[in-house]
Computed example of a mutant assay.
Amino acid sequence: MRSALWSLLYGAALLLCDATATYHLSPGDPRLLAAQSYAQNRNNGRPPLRTLDPRKTDAQCRSRPLDLVFIIDSSRSVRPGEFEKVKIFLGDMVDTLDVGSDATRVAVVNYASTVKIEFLLKDHFSQLDMKKAISRIEPLAAGTMTGLAIKTAMNEAFTEQSGARPRSRNISKVAIIVTDGRPQDQVEEVSAEARASGVEIYAVGVDRADMRSLQQMASIPLEDHVFYVETYGVIEKLTSKFRETLCGVDPCAMGHDCQHICVNSNASFYCKCRNGYILNADKKTCSLKQVKVEVVEDPCKCEARLAFQKQTQAALQQLTAKHILSVVSAGRIERLENMVGRA
């Protein structure tokens, strides 16, 4: 009887602990300390129930093209079972992305006391290859040099030589940092430099992560770029959150006022017309193109017309001269007759 009672109490504590992690209850609430300690011991004391399967592919969204670099903490505080959950999170993220050389490119930077680039933006252009590469990542242990990891990502991962698209392409550059501790170096200045260069930074804190450091790293607004979960056991739940953030919204599908064709452009849209039409000044409606008919005179006809005009003019001049002569002659005859009559 006593054994059954302890089993029920233990099970209730585990359920309470999972609810705490899922719904982000305050870790400082004294009523939850016991449940959290049970969860910590359970998660750290046995291997995860799920492992990364490179063949698995969930329904993906049509994301806007990105140059995306994951910067993951694998210091000693991240236990092997927890690090496996980080890799599952990365695999799930890859599943949601439209991966390809002309779509989203992904790189992974692994760090502890040292920094290791696991693969670059130019290395893998398929989900399967990326997930296989992720499954082979091993923790580095010791230290938490987050600032060094960010600097390495900027100098070596976000470069054109490593596969990043040139700035003229206007491809968004995004870094997602996952850490569970306090950085042992400075992160504020190097993060500011990264943001100033055009990199959008998301900071994900787990368990013991220092909230102030997360805020120093992340882009603004902070409420959209800083995330926190109590345990690695629920980090996978962030996949749906990032899906909403990184997946391209389809403004045309949400409604538009284009008369003919709506074209998505990042978070907005513009209107186009079908062939044979032009866009009006309102940038929404279309009008039929006015075809300008240009009449080309036949040079032969022009020369003939000119010759005819000259001939006509000459004939008129001759007629006029004859008329004048006849008038003059008639006047002379009349004067002669008058003179004979008087004689």
Rank of each mutant, 00 (worst) to 15 (best):
G198T: 07
S213F: 03
Q215P: 11
V204H: 03
S191P: 15
G198N: 12
Q216G: 10
M211P: 02
E189Q: 08
V187I: 15
R182M: 05
I201P: 04
L214V: 08
V199C: 02
P221F: 01
I201F: 04
S172N: 12
R212D: 15
R182E: 11
V234K: 02
Y202H: 09
V199F: 09
S197L: 05
Y232K: 12
V187W: 00
A218T: 07
V178H: 04
I177G: 02
I235N: 01
G205W: 05
S172H: 10
V229R: 13
V234F: 03
I220C: 06
E223L: 09
M217W: 01
I220H: 14
P221T: 13
S191C: 08
L214K: 10
V174N: 10
Q216A: 09
D224S: 08
G198D: 11
K173Q: 15
E230Q: 12
V204C: 07
E189S: 02
Q184W: 05
P183D: 15
G233P: 01
Y232T: 14
I177T: 07
V206A: 14
H225V: 09
R212G: 06
E188F: 00
G181S: 15
D224C: 08
R182N: 07
S172K: 05
P221Q: 08
E200K: 13
D224L: 06
R195E: 07
I176H: 09
E230T: 13
A209P: 15
E223I: 12
V187Q: 00
A194N: 04
S197V: 06
D180P: 09
R208A: 14
Q186F: 00
V234Q: 03
S172C: 03
